[in-house]
Design a protein around this nucleic acid. Structure first.
Lengths: 343, 343
DNA sequence: CCTGAGCATTACATCGTTGGAATCCCATTG
DNA sequence: CAATGGGATTCCAACGATGTAATGCTCAGG
């Protein structure tokens, strides 16, 4: 059986509370006593029971991280930073998948309470943050949202998706592209905040340059995966071929993952990138620089996101009434080999 | 403040224990009483405090999943299955990163005890399972290892890496390849169990076919990442070019991630795959079928791994003295476009 | 009308830890 | 030498849920 403070206390010849005092270090303990306790601690290989501690002071030391799709490379990179940085703060990360289902998000919040996490980092896909609206505010655990959300009063951390998309589109226009397709726009039942904002930035750049939007160049994959992106692009290419219409001269994918799918389809059809069509992405995942050709994309510091989210969460846990923070993470366009200059 | 069993009991006009009985459903409760309690439960939006429950019955409902590198696509896919399947069993997944440092693994085990997880799924990279050896068996939490491990008495789940590597090599030989480079072999300070076994399978196939091993075709990247693989391959190509030696006719990467790096380098040098060099991988990550060209690789059911690991863990938690299980997950070679038939 | 069986419910103790209040001890001071 | 102070330590209770043992209740049979 595992040693408890009582066992340690008995061995050291002190009371359990003194052991606790040594461990937590808030109440002063005489050096000689501390040594005795510490040696007993080591001798019995004492490990505190977090359930008991959590019960006593209401902290579990666990933070939930809920991402929409855990299997993407982007999620993986983000998760890694969260785990590493949470460690430094003495937290463990409990991983959850929110999917694209808003009910799932609600369930997660209640699960969060069940499993007693101290806080929740939520990366919602959907615009309507039903979770937050539905629940009584006081009933919610401390939450920080990754991504842009409408309702105020919620801590959030995000890149300026709209600006980044606008800049990327402007870059394509500046390099001579005129018919720019997007992959990951909003439409039908798929409406994500991120999607809407990136599309808005794209539209803004287009209209600022006096270019018309072509609805058929707005591809709406069923999921933000390489497979779905590939099938949408295939459909577009087929249509163009059948009707004898010209292909777009650039494809702006709202994630690098989808860009990978797009590049694959183009390569399979013998369409040269970037000579015939330029392709750009978003996120700068590790694989982006190893795409063929290396992918021009939007980079931002994922570790900074994790760090900001955890800081905000720590603050929120400490003070439930603190004013909501809205932290914007800087981004930049990294130029690689998937964009050509057209005359 | 959150409702407790006491509050519910007061509202329903019964004792706390009766509420507990209703919730857990082991002790029979009269229908009329149960209804009253259930309505009180709903009315107060009662959520059990897992810390308290955990303290009482020694279960936390948390499982730790420790993977060597969380940022890889492979980790992401595995993590997703674990999270989904753990949910079904009423567990939450606590994510940990083991890195390639054995000390880190030891630390994880003690952290596991600190954070009071019910069990630990460990994917060690290193052969020497120091963790298990160092600790007193009775002190260890229930552990299941993903991957091949030498010491007996530990539950493990894995694919037959050696056989798969042998079959893949045989396939390359059968299609006419004679000089097969490997990326991810063991050497220097990097010695992982997986690496050793895959290399062994490769060697076996080679010698069975009467082919000589060429030491310079054994590439040992510093990490199993696309970047490291790319830099090793670049070095090899440079050497061949400088010395006027022939290139290998196939490259067997021990992970798909590394294959992505290899494909990128080859494309960058204008070396056509598979016409001049065939490339194969291992893992069948989602991106593999979207590589350029689509990657021939070893596929296995990652969900089956997660399922088997969780089942084994559940069994182990239930009975610490159960005989250790060793579950082998089936694999197959998926043929895509990165291998050519040579005459 | 009483007794006993059998089921439903309650009272109590307990899991391990730690705040808060009370107590103890030693040293300093009058 | 006694009183005082303050730092160190101890005692007690409580966090919330649940196992155990005891109690209460209802109903059948004598």
């Amino acid at each position: 059986m595992r040693a408890t403070v009582r066992d340690v206390a008995k061995l050291a010849g002190v009371s359990p509370k003194t052991v606790s005092n040594v461990i937590n270090g808030v109440v002063p303990v005489r050096a000689e006593t501390r040594e005795r306790v510490e040696s007993a601690l080591a001798q019995l290989d004492y490990v505190p029971n977090m359930s008991a501690r959590g019960l006593r002071n209401g902290r579990s030391g666990n933070i939930a991280l809920a991402l929409p799709d855990l299997s993407t490379a982007y999620s993986a990179e983000l998760a890694r930073h969260f785990v590493e940085l949470a460690h430094e703060r003495g937290w463990a990360i409990q991983l959850e998948q929110s999917g694209n289902d808003p009910r799932r998000e609600v369930e997660l919040v209640s699960r969060a309470r069940t499993h007693l996490v101290d806080g929740l980092v939520l990366n919602p896909t959907l615009l309507s943050m039903s979770v937050v609206a539905d629940h009584d505010e006081s009933e919610l655990p401390p939450i920080v949202v990754i991504g842009e959300v409408e309702p105020d009063g919620i801590d959030q951390v995000h890149v300026d998706s709209e600006l980044a998309a606008r800049q990327m589109t402007e870059h394509l226009i500046a390099t001579g592209h005129r018919r720019i397709a997007i992959v990951g726009g909003s439409g039908g039942r798929f409406r994500s905040a991120t999607s809407l904002l990136r599309q808005r930035g794209y539209s803004a750049a287009l209209s600022a340059a006096g270019l018309a939007e072509e609805p058929e160049l707005n591809l709406v994959p069923t999921a933000w995966t390489p497979a779905a992106a590939a099938s949408e692009l295939t459909a577009l290419l087929d249509t163009c071929e059948r009707d004898g219409r010209a292909l777009p001269d650039a494809v702006f994918c709202f994630t690098d993952s989808m860009a990978l799918g797009v590049l694959h389809v183009l390569a399979g059809r013998g369409i040269r990138v970037p000579d015939e069509i330029s392709v750009v992405g978003f996120d700068d995942i590790d694989e982006a620089s190893f795409a063929i050709p290396a992918l021009t994309t939007v980079r931002f510091d994922k570790r900074a996101i994790a760090d900001a989210a955890l800081s905000a969460l720590a603050r929120r846990i400490g003070d439930a009434d603190a004013p909501a923070s809205d932290i914007v993470i800087a981004h930049e366009i990294v130029h690689r080999d998937s964009v050509a200059r057209r005359l």
